[in-house]
Amino acid sequence: MVPTLIGRIQTRLFLLATVGVVITALIVPVLPGLTGPLSQDYLTGFSVLAAVAVLGVLWELLYHFLMQFRWEKDWPTLFGLLTLVPEGLLLLFLLRSGAIGSVIDPVPPASAFWTQFVVVWICVWLVANGPMRVPFIRWRFRGGRVL
């Protein structure tokens, strides 16, 4: 799928709300370093997921801007994977610095954060690069728009 701006944003929100939610629900009980009651761990896990979605909309604006310098106006598969590094680092920094610490409290330890973040990211990336096309046959021809 080669995205348009609105398609990028819709795909991110849709996949985080589906694949992201399922993976988070499955992975939170086994995340390393979480010590609170399970309900609190879930609250933390889903808060992190929500933060990825909200911040992600801003990231997508940046990616769209950068894509304009590519002749083909495409976004290679590899970029979709590697962008997890800056996005993860920024989010962790914002959590640790307290910038969004008032929303997500307690801040998860780095091990729990990275495990959840990377697993969710890879699952979303894999689904976006294939299985998504099975139920949604028009999605890839509409720049990633779900609606």
Binding site: V2, P3, T4, W71, E72, K73, D74, W75, R140, F141
Partner: peptide, 10 residues
């Protein structure tokens, strides 16, 4: 260019 099949150029 690749985006004619579904992206921005399309």
């Amino acid at each position: 260019p690749k985006s004619v099949w579904g992206g921005q150029l399309k």
